[in-house]
Amino acid sequence: MNDVIAALVAPFDAAEVVERSYASSATTYHMIAIPVEEWVLFAQAAKENGFDTFIDLFAADHFSEAPRFEVTLILLSMTAKERIVVTTRVPYDDPSVPTLTNVFQGANFYEREAYDMFGIDFPGHPDLTRILLPDDWVGHPLRKDYDIGAVPVQFKAGSADL
C-alpha cells in the first residue's frame, strides 16, 4: 500500500484494502471494501485525495452469500496514476445504496443502470428510472434468479411419424 492509498483509508477504520497487481501489464490497483454507511463519505474523501475521475459504477449479485448485492465504484487518480476499486455490500431485503450523483455527476446513468439490471435503490438520485429496458419491463435481468430464457426448438426431422 502506498502513501496515497494509506492517506485515503486512514480515517476509515472499517475499510479493508487489498492490493492487486498484474505483471505483464503494469496494472496495479487497490480493492477497498467499505460498509454502506460510509459509501458517500468515502467517495467524497477519495475525490478530495485526488481520485477525481469517475470511471465506473455497477452492481453484482452474489446469489448465495449473506449480503447478496455488491456495488462497485471505480475511481482514477490521473496525478498519482492510481486506480481504486471500492466495493460495498447490501442485503437482499434492503438493497439500497445512497446516491453518488452529488459527488460525481457521472454516477447518474450508471446508478440508473444498476437499478435497471439489479433493482438496487439509490436514495437521493434525481431521476431513478429504467435506462436500458422499457418502463414496463418486469424484473431485473442481471439478478441470478432471473432466467436467461430460451427459444424452444422443435426437431421435426427424424421423428417417429415421418
Binding site: 505483464s24 501489464s25 503494469a26 496494472t27 490521473m78 455527476q105
Partner: peptide, 28 residues
C-alpha cells in the same frame, strides 16, 4: 466535466487532459 463524467480517450485529450492508458498503465 471530463473528470466528473468519466470521459476518456480522444474526447478527454482534446480538452487538454493528458491521460493515455498506453503511457500510464502500459499493456502488451
Amino acid at each position: 466535466e471530463i473528470k466528473q463524467f468519466g470521459i476518456t480517450g480522444p474526447v478527454a485529450r482534446a480538452s487538454g487532459v493528458d491521460w493515455d492508458l498506453r503511457k500510464a498503465h502500459p499493456y502488451c
